[in-house]
Nucleic acid binder design. Structure first.
Lengths: 231, 231
DNA sequence: TCTTTTGATTGATATATGTCATCGGAACAT
DNA sequence: ATGTTCCGATGACATATATCAATCAAAAGA
């Protein structure tokens, strides 16, 4: 029972619902025996796009950004990972490589589980496999949204989307301190750092947002939502 | 054995490898009994974004475009579906809705299989479920590419990507006739119809491409590849 | 303390891309 | 034959966004 709590604590994937809830106690205990932890300092890579996908990673404490690296060295930040969130990757069961990079944005502890452990669980437990399919499909829906937003909305709409994401899904508050730089905010919104700063200033001037350095305070969320919706 | 051929013929998913190869003969025959065909005229919707996801669809003959519909009524064409390709959708095992639309671009026959049939197969056959996960992951990799291309490349790079996709993955030839309109090409490349026409003209002027109305002939594929790569 | 570096900010300017209006031709219906 | 509609094509123009250069402020070393 101790094992169960320990693992569900570590592994439960809040973001996309807990895909571990269908594991038996033995299975959870098995995962727990096989996992190990690694510490990362802020800014360090947890794994690297193009590198071998040997382990599935679960954030235990801290926060990480997951991002695509383009040929021209610009990045697209796909999402932020909080404790208990799981980072798999589409290389699983395909080419066994990472298709995005992950980096700690504050000091972070992550727990590593061998890919083979996952494969065993999926083989043994059908319900778990179905849950994994659902998990992947939810990720897919998120990507469709990102594609629509980043290709069909203007800068203010994209930045509004980023701020709403941070406030609602990451920090769960209208007021938050963030370790993200302006460049990070730009990489989340598909624009240059300068444009990000200018859009934030616009929001400030319109009284929608208060922000200085790392402090953010969304003053008018409805306005932000409208900007996001209209584009 | 007849059944097997019939179904693999209908169902094999060439695009993302055949996920049906791990079904037993009984399972294939079960699928075959449960499927039924529907004909669509060119331009007709096969299913609609937002609508209920009750069946998985497999193109038997003809061709269809799969596309996201934005709030402002503009579209993003995700990919084209040829015979024997499968259209599922991320609504499967999540919200049971379609997250994209599909429409025939020529007269098309599609075969429908109830979602519950799929769920039964996934439940009974672990290997099939693992293959489904691999299939989803490959689709995921494709989306990352689309995201990188459509947000970080210029128009000529995006159109080059579209032409390479058509030539290599859809028509499998440097010369092809297509039912796609200029608007469709634009929707595949995240730009306006006018811009698409202008970029095609550029390619023409540079001797990279010959095209008039629905006829396309890629004269210099290497140049196109380079344009795609550089952006 | 002083220097050095890094990140945030701003302004001027260039460029890519969208918008709008127009026109011609082909397909199609009357 | 004649209008009508739709699609492709083109030019003029507007505007969104990136680029470049220059400060400024704060943090980090030395």
């Amino acid at each position: 029972m101790e094992n169960v709590e320990k693992v569900t604590n570590c592994l439960q994937c809040k973001f996309q619902s807990n895909i571990f809830r269908f594991l038996s106690e033995e299975e959870l205990s098995y995962v727990n025996d096989m996992r190990f932890e690694v510490s990362f300092k802020s800014g360090e890579n947890i794994f690297k796009q193009g590198g071998p996908l040997t382990h599935i990673v679960c954030i235990t404490s801290g926060m990480a950004k997951v991002f695509l690296e383009a040929d021209d060295h610009s990045d697209i930040i796909l999402r932020l990972m909080k404790p208990t969130e799981l980072i798999g990757g589409p290389g699983f069961r395909t080419d066994n490589r990472h298709h995005f990079s992950a980096a700690a944005i504050v000091d972070t502890v992550a727990c590593f589980i061998e890919v083979s452990v996952f494969e065993k669980l999926l083989n043994d437990n059908t319900r778990f496999a179905l849950e994994m399919i659902a998990y992947l499909n939810r990720a897919h829906i998120g990507l469709y949204n990102k594609l629509l937003t980043n290709t069909h909305k203007h800068m203010s709409g994209r930045m509004a989307g980023t701020l709403l994401y941070l406030s609602e899904e990451v920090y769960e508050s209208n007021v938050f301190e963030t370790a993200l730089s302006r460049q990070d905010l730009a990489d989340m919104s598909s624009m240059t750092k300068e444009s990000a700063i200018r859009v934030l200033k616009e929001f400030k001037d319109e009284g929608i947002l208060n922000c200085y350095s790392s402090h953010f305070d969304i003053a008018n969320k409805e306005a932000l939502r409208k900007i996001y919706k209209i584009g």
